[in-house]
Every structure is written in structure tokens, then in C-alpha cells.
Design a protein around this nucleic acid. Sequence first.
DNA 1: AGCGCCATGTAATGCGTTACATGATTAT
DNA 2: ATAATCATGTAACGCATTACATGGCGCT
Lengths: 187, 187
Amino acid sequence: MKAVKPTLLGYTLLGLLHQKPASGYDLRKLFAATPLMSYSSSPGAIYPALGSLESQGLIRSTVEEQGLRRRNVFRPTSAGTKCLRTWLLQPLTTEDVVRKIDSVMMRFGLMDQVAGREASLNLLRGFEPLLAIHVAGLQRFLDDNGSAMNLSGRLALESGVRSYKGLLSWSRDAIAEYERAGKRGKK
Amino acid sequence: MKAVKPTLLGYTLLGLLHQKPASGYDLRKLFAATPLMSYSSSPGAIYPALGSLESQGLIRSTVEEQGLRRRNVFRPTSAGTKCLRTWLLQPLTTEDVVRKIDSVMMRFGLMDQVAGREASLNLLRGFEPLLAIHVAGLQRFLDDNGSAMNLSGRLALESGVRSYKGLLSWSRDAIAEYERAGKRGKK
DNA sequence: AGCGCCATGTAATGCGTTACATGATTAT
DNA sequence: ATAATCATGTAACGCATTACATGGCGCT
């Protein structure tokens, strides 16, 4: 078995297709219409990415001619779904928190549908302590070096610290929300 | 005169060199030691970027052999400083706010040293209303579509909204801080 | 007949990442 | 002596961006 490792965009497409089969054009519209992500809806990004997923056997396309123009509708293969799950369920690393937040949030956003609520809650429970550690480190750096920096530099750094603090409190709220939803579900 | 347009990393290096001349290795250490940015300290990023800046005439290198090993110390040329200022003082666009926040924050962080406090405050004053508009748009999308999304998807979106809200309130605090500092300075 | 949208792509370009490579110098 | 650190790079690779290209369909 060969190593198959889509890019973040690839995984994202895979996740979206898992939620609902779609054509390249559908996906482009989706990217353009939702603030979900920082991706561009450019065809030069999406069509090649779909092509590469298909050539790796992770998605399959079927042509639909339903009265209108020809549409190339993609859906994940079982290998694709498996690959997606593996990516989603991968344990979180410090590196993920420090430099790949986008990827983490994307994984989380797709998680419910593909891997279930248990898994989502699990991810959050791993996320929170890693965030707490990182926030503490940033705060420490700011305390140590802030006074030696010029105002705009210090404020820029502060904005980064705040943003991680916000994420930390978000993660706590999100855990609480899952726990509430879980209780309701079991009643 | 040819068009000279460094990348974000290039501008960042230019800004750091404006604050203090440094060698490639110094810069790598700086990137590794400070949480300032999301960049990697990999030599494969920094040395080529420095090379390209040099070949564009934006920085110049002088070899220093002060008792130790050979060090290639870079500093901006006057063209480099001018180019940096132009980038910093460029008006903010909606696009910047929606998809290039990193670049905006980097510009702000470097601003005091290169363009003065007036300019920093000016940037913030342009930033705040653009942020407010964007936050309103995100909130609107969330209100309209939130109930139709699954829990993890909605929470992921919420985290994005919160993060922009945090940035908005940061920008207000930062403006206030500049105004206080300005008053103190003029007394 | 012509304009604009639907739908799919390709080509050129440039950038960062990872990994590899080299040599000189200080510490143990 | 040899390991670690200083200091500089190069090569291969993959990826996204921008811009261009094509053709069918629907409206006016």
C-alpha cells in the first residue's frame, strides 16, 4: 500500500464531498459563499486538487447530464472516507496548535459528520490543555519582553496572545456545549 | 524602473533589518525564539529570501570577520527602506482584512519604527471600521445558517467569528492606548 | 446577434517546506 | 577526539495564485 497524503485543501474537499457529493463548480461556489475558510475559490486550486484526489483513488466522479449541461459529480470512495477518518482522528500535537490552527479547526468542523460527536469532544479535550500551555508561554514572553518593545510591536504581539486566549475560552465553551448536548441525547 | 514586490516574508525581513542589521543566522534565531510570527526558521526560506532582496537592491550585505567566523550582515538600502515604507503605508482593503490578517498585523508591528506613531494610529483607525463590517457579516451568516449546521461545524464557524470580534476589541483598545501615549508625549 | 453565466479546465509563476550538504569553531 | 553549535547555503518537491482558454446554454 502506498502512502497517500492529501493536502489540507484535499482533506477539506474530501470532507465536503462526504457531507454531500458535488461538482467542482459546486465546491467553488461553496468556497465563495461561506466564510468557512481562508481558501480561494479559484479553479486553479480546486480542479487540480480534485484531479489528484481522484488519481489517488480517494474520490470517484460520475457524469450527470440531467437535462442541463454536463456536470462531473464527485463522491468519496471507501478508501477516501477511511483516509479522511485517519486524518481527523490523528492525535493533536503541539505543532498543530502553534502553527497549524487552521488545519485543526478544519478537522474539528468536519468531525461530527464523519467521526461522530464522541470524537469531536475528544478532540476538544485534547486541544484545551495544549492551548493553555501555549497561552502561558506567549504570556510569559510578553511579560518578559514587552517593556523592551516599541508600542506597535508590543500591541501586535498582544493581539496574538489575545487571539489564543479567545480560542482557549472558546474551547472550554465548546466542551460544555458538547457535554450538554450529550446529556440531552442520552435522556 | 522595474516593479519590485517582495513577498510577506521579504517585507518582514526588510522590517527586521531596518530595526537592526543582522545576518541570516541572526534572523533565523529571531524567528525561532519569538512568537512574533507564523514563519518557520528554516534556512531554505530565509537565505533565498535574503538573496532575492539583495539582487533587487533592497538590502546590501557586508562581511564581518570580527575575530569569529565570517558573518554576512545585511542592512536595507535606501531603496529598500523606501519600498518598505510604501508597503507599510499602503491603504487597507477589505481583502486585507478578510484574507490577509497576518500581513496586516505584520505591517502594524513594524510600523512604529519605520513610519512613526502617527502612521500606526492611522492604520488602526482604518482597520477598525473594516473589521466591524466583517464581523457583522460573519455574525449575520452565523445567525442565518447556524441552525442548519451540525454542532462541530457551527462551533468551528463560531470560533472564527469570535476571533474577529476579539481583534475588533483589540483594535479599539490599541487606538485608546495610542491616544493616551500621544497625549503624554505632547504634554 | 450578442452578452453573460454555467462549467470545466490548463499554463506560468513563485513561494515555502523538508531535507540534505558543507565547513569552521568552541566546549568536554 | 568528537560532539555540539555557528553559519551558510542548495535541491527537490508540492502547492496555491493569477490569468488565460474553451464551449454550451439562456436571455433579450
